[in-house]
């Protein structure tokens, strides 16, 4: 059965962290809930799982591609139109380095920008379950669970001090 989201809204970060603990105790997988905040909280402040991403791979791929392009462009140009300047070799590394460096940078930059968009899933297709009060300092605890668990999860969030629990179809339970 498909999981559907449920959002608990908290006016205190401590209560949101308590909700996280309670969800963990109730056997909800850590990958099934997330904390939505208006400012970055320190890693582990809510007792949440460590987030992993692959953003660092993107610039490396871009840099390798950019460097390869730079090497090919400079060496092939110089081989195609050999010009001896001041007794310097046809394939002189210092002038090649200028183009290669720029190519490396351009590749790394483009791939980093692409990586940021892809890894953060921005722009998102749709916002999903959200409450605008999160931008005013409330903490959202977003839980993905099966319909059968909605009642239990809603109870956990309310017990932890949620001021409101929302789920899709605009149904809401206010504490």
């Amino acid at each position: 059965m498909a999981k559907r989201p449920l959002l608990g809204l908290f006016d205190s970060a401590d209560r949101a962290a308590d909700a996280g603990d309670a969800l963990k105790k109730a056997g909800i997988a850590e990958t099934d809930y997330d904390f939505l905040t208006d400012a970055p909280y320190p890693e582990g402040a809510f007792g949440e799982r460590a987030e992993h991403h692959r953003l660092y791979i993107y610039p490396m791929i871009g840099a390798v591609l950019g460097l390869t392009s730079g090497v090919m462009l400079t060496s092939m140009t110089q081989m195609a139109f050999p010009m001896v300047q001041g007794g310097k070799p046809i394939l002189a590394l210092p002038p090649m380095a200028v183009i290669c460096y720029e190519g490396t940078m351009l590749g790394a930059i483009l791939f980093t920008i692409f990586g940021i968009l892809f890894e953060s899933r921005l722009p998102a297709g749709k916002l999903g379950l959200y409450d605008t009060r999160i931008t005013q300092g409330f903490i959202g605890v977003l839980v993905h669970c099966e319909d059968a668990e909605h009642g239990k999860v809603s109870g956990i969030l309310s017990s932890a001090g949620a001021v409101e629990v929302k789920w899709e179809n605009a149904r809401a339970a206010t504490a």
């Binding site: 997330d34 904390f35 939505l36 905040t37 208006d38 970055p40 949440e48 987030e51 991403h53 953003l55 660092y56 980093t112 990586g115 940021i116 890894e119 953060s120 899933r121 921005l122 722009p123 998102a124 297709g125 749709k126 916002l127 999903g128 959200y130 999160i134 931008t135 959202g140 977003l142």
Partner: peptide, 15 residues
């Protein structure tokens, strides 16, 4: 459609 999820903050800082 930024929502302020942990992953988004993480990527934002790393980016």
């Amino acid at each position: 459609r930024w929502c302020g999820a942990k992953r988004q903050w993480h990527i934002q800082k790393a980016g």
